[in-house]
Write a protein that binds this DNA or RNA. Structure first.
Lengths: 144, 144
DNA sequence: ATTTAATCTATTGATTTAGTAGGCTTTTAG
DNA sequence: CTAAAAGCCTACTAAATCAATAGATTAAAT
């Protein structure tokens, strides 16, 4: 399951995507509208800034804004950044590879294939899920 | 990521699948061969028995054995049992449904669709991954 | 009756998650 | 130049989950 932190991150990003090119948005505004604890959100946005997804401006009139286009940010990136590996085993992770200690030999493990397949399918869907698409869907759903 | 407990469970089940119809296998044997702490494995096997995947026999010559055929036990069942939900959000979980507190309205959430799709693809693969298939694959890999 | 092996309850230590506190730095407005 | 606004950064903490352990109990076989 996604961590709360990751859900918060996604909601904040969608919020910023909706206000793309409208200048900096303050943490406090996002926190209130999305019901996220201010200080926690602060840490999350900082992480997204360090990953070059957001940029910030200090002082009065400051805040956060997307530095990438909403079509260029997807759930795969965000989830990897906040929650780490997408794969269900370290030994099939592309970005966080590690041996499974309990496996004698990786070459003989019959589980890996299945979980590598799960990983591929998951990545395919998450990579398609851009902020732009999520936003579009939300607007469609809101209209009904 | 899968918990260690779940990995242990899968390895133990594959071990028992390989010895299907050969009578009870003792915890101690599985623990040694699969490098799983005896007491921890004990708890895991008990859980699998309560889920009617395994059965046990007490006393001398006792142990655990599969009560279902290796073709009838798959990773979806095992992972759900040991680690809980497969879905990445409670609100898209089929077996462990729960509201996402931080979402104002489930109907307007643009993230759910993507994660429901991830869930479907994941379930499809995991349900296909039976003990029989895993075992077959391991034997193939071992020959090379 | 003794031994073997699973059963069950309770407890523990380590790690992760979710959040809080508080001072520091930069920017803008007056 | 100084006060206020807003993000930056480090450290800490409470609660939950994970990984395992301890020890006494029950059931079956010989």
């Amino acid at each position: 399951m996604l961590s709360k932190k990751c859900k918060y991150a996604i909601h904040a990003l969608v919020y910023l995507a909706e206000r793309y090119d409208q200048g900096p948005i303050q943490i406090e505004e996002i926190a209130k509208k999305q019901h996220i604890p201010h200080k926690f959100l602060e840490a999350i946005l900082l992480e997204l800034r360090h990953a070059d997804i957001l940029e910030s401006k200090k002082g009065k009139g400051g805040g956060y804004f997307l530095v990438k286009k909403p079509t260029e940010v997807n759930l795969m990136q965000v989830m990897r950044l906040i929650d780490g590996p997408i794969a269900l085993l370290p030994c099939v992770s592309l970005n966080f590879y590690g041996r499974c200690e309990e496996c004698k030999s990786e070459k003989i493990c019959g589980i890996r294939d299945s979980l590598a397949l799960v990983r591929d399918e998951t990545l395919r869907v998450l990579e398609q899920s851009t902020l732009a698409k999520i936003l579009k869907r939300e607007k469609q759903l809101a209209q009904k």
